[in-house]
Computed example of a mutant assay.
Amino acid sequence: MAVYTSITAEELSLLLADFDLGTLIKFEGIEGGIENTNYFVDLELRGQKKSYVLTIFEELSADEMPFFIELGHWLAERNTPVPYAIKDKNGIALKQIKGKPAALQPRFYGSDVPAVKLRPIHCFQIGEALARFHLAGNDFYLKRQAHRGVFWWRRESEAIAHRLTTEDAFLLKQEVQAFDELREAELDLPSGVIHGDLFHDNALFQDDKLVAILDMYNAATAYQLYDLAIVANDWCNNADHTIDSEREQALLEGYAQIRPFTADESTAWPILTRTAAMRFWLSRLIPWLGIAQASRQGGEMKLKDPDQYKQILLQRLQHPAKLL
Score class of each variant (00 low, 15 high):
Ser6Arg: 06
Ile7Asp: 01
Glu10Trp: 03
Glu11Tyr: 04
Ser13His: 07
Gly29Tyr: 02
Glu35Asp: 13
Asn38Lys: 05
Tyr39Leu: 07
Phe40Val: 05
Leu43Ile: 04
Glu44Phe: 00
Lys50Trp: 05
Phe57Arg: 03
Leu60Gly: 03
Phe67Met: 03
Lys87Pro: 00
Asn90Ala: 09
Asn90His: 10
Asn90Leu: 08
Lys95Trp: 01
His134Ser: 10
Gly137His: 11
Asp139Trp: 02
Phe140His: 07
His147Gly: 03
Arg148Leu: 06
Arg154Ser: 15
Ile160Asn: 12
Thr165Ser: 15
Ala169Ile: 06
Glu181His: 12
Glu181Ile: 13
Ile194Thr: 14
Asp197Tyr: 04
Asp197Arg: 06
Gln206Tyr: 04
Asp207Ala: 13
Lys209Ser: 12
Ile213Trp: 04
Asp215Ser: 08
Met216Pro: 05
Tyr223Leu: 09
Asp227Arg: 13
Ala229Gly: 10
Asp234Arg: 07
Cys236Met: 09
Glu246Gln: 07
Gln249Asp: 09
Gln249Thr: 14
Glu253Gly: 04
Pro260Ile: 14
Met278Cys: 07
Leu282His: 01
Ile286Asn: 08
Pro287Val: 08
Ile291Cys: 09
Ile291Thr: 08
Lys302Thr: 15
Asp305Val: 11
Lys310Asp: 03
Leu313Glu: 11
Leu317Pro: 01
Gln318Pro: 05
